[in-house]
Write a protein that binds this DNA or RNA. Structure first.
Lengths: 225, 225
DNA sequence: CTAGCACCGATTGTTCTACAAACCTAGATC
DNA sequence: GATCTAGGTTTGTAGAACAATCGGTGCTAG
């Protein structure tokens, strides 16, 4: 039995070349294909034991999701978000996450998923498995947006969040960046459940601002643009 | 010289199979490929004089954009938004458009594009060219979202708006649906420029609510789900 | 007559081969 | 040292081929 992939959490993709998309997504999110590296068609096709054509179809999908960058006649490479991209990503996050949380109903099943993500992040943090912490963090915020019950918001947001993961991987200081997230996710969840969605949204807004500053700081230190 | 396609307005795509994506997008938006119709690979490949492989790559792109629906082993068909889709699309519109307009700076170059779109809509409405009115309407709201200077918001929103166009085409009562838009776009623009972004956002919120009701009404009358 | 079942044609999924076009690099020339 | 040219490499695209899957047709059994 194949271990449940991160991509499987998003949408119920099925067999065939969709599974290729999932496999690639997993590699990207796991950081095995590092941001910026060029992806040779023949090489990757060989690695996954698929034809070039099939691989190219997967490339188009992931390109449209923002995980791969496609330059005509020069092939595709793993997206490597610039500081401008990071700023844009956080703008989208604030717009979508805060807006969703503010209007979220009080008792929504996704709250369960949010709590589960917090717990997973807790465990992973104690084990100092920062990649897992990052994964749980993504799951938390995806669950938060799914409070909206809007497939389109969830899809767009999921893409943006996956892109942000690439930004984290680009400046690989995962422990430092992910440590504060765990408690703040928990705080947002508690306020949402015990006080009000609006109050939680306000906290989330600050949270995202701080998070953005941290990432941009890491970019500056790493000398990345 | 090729006439400027609608798709060209979105992003600066270049040559090759991207132009195939643009061609297909134009056909979809123009309603020449009606919502729900199945797209045969060999037939379309012949029509555009490209190979099946190339066409399939374009299919994956448009599928990811939500314009085509891809069912494994059963091919692709033009997306045919259900009422649930329409509701979701308007939820996204409210979330993004209102949020963007509320925070929009006072003097943004996109205001020019918005005014141009209003003018085009005016002319087209007088000529009773409702398809053009719809196109100008799309341009207006795309310009509105570009007030955010956020490429990702613009991209996601553009996809959703194109999908909505398919919803309009599905219940083809274009004149009735598009007529009120012209003046209300103008109103939103004026209030944004002369009063305040926040006031304009409030008006836009009502506008979108009314628009949603109209579309859903048309769906009900057409007996569509 | 209807429910089920086997078959068959059509379409999609995927691979392979082939080649033109664009790109990158390195060596040659001035 | 800068520019140009040639060659190898990679991408873009076409086309043929075949397995897998789907949809419908007609047959059979009850």
């Amino acid at each position: 039995m194949r271990t449940l992939s991160l991509a499987d959490h998003y949408d119920g993709r099925v067999a065939h070349e969709s599974s290729l998309v999932n496999q690639l997504t997993d590699l990207l999110i796991a950081g095995e294909l590092r941001p910026g590296v060029r992806l040779s068609e023949t090489a990757l096709a060989g690695r996954f034991d698929v034809s070039r054509n099939t691989l190219r179809e997967a490339f188009r999908v992931l390109g449209e999701q923002g995980l791969l960058q496609h330059v005509p006649n020069r092939g595709v490479s793993v997206a490597s978000p610039s500081t401008a991209d990071v700023i844009d990503i956080y703008r989208v996050r604030r717009t979508i996450e805060c807006s969703v949380l503010e209007r979220a109903p009080r008792n929504h099943p996704s709250a369960e998923a949010m709590r589960a993500a917090v717990d997973r992040a807790r465990s992973a943090a104690q084990a100092e498995d920062w990649l897992q912490v990052g994964t749980a963090n993504m799951a938390f915020h995806n669950a938060l947006v799914s409070l909206s019950d809007s497939p389109r918001l969830m899809r767009s947001f999921g893409n943006v969040l996956a892109e942000l993961r690439l930004a984290f991987l680009k400046v690989e200081v995962l422990d430092f960046l992910h440590a504060p997230f765990v408690d703040r996710n928990h705080e947002v969840l508690e306020v949402y459940l015990s006080e009000s969605p609006a109050a939680a949204a306000a906290i989330l807004g600050h949270y995202l601002g701080d998070s953005e500053r941290q990432v941009l700081g890491a970019y500056a230190r790493a000398g990345q643009s």
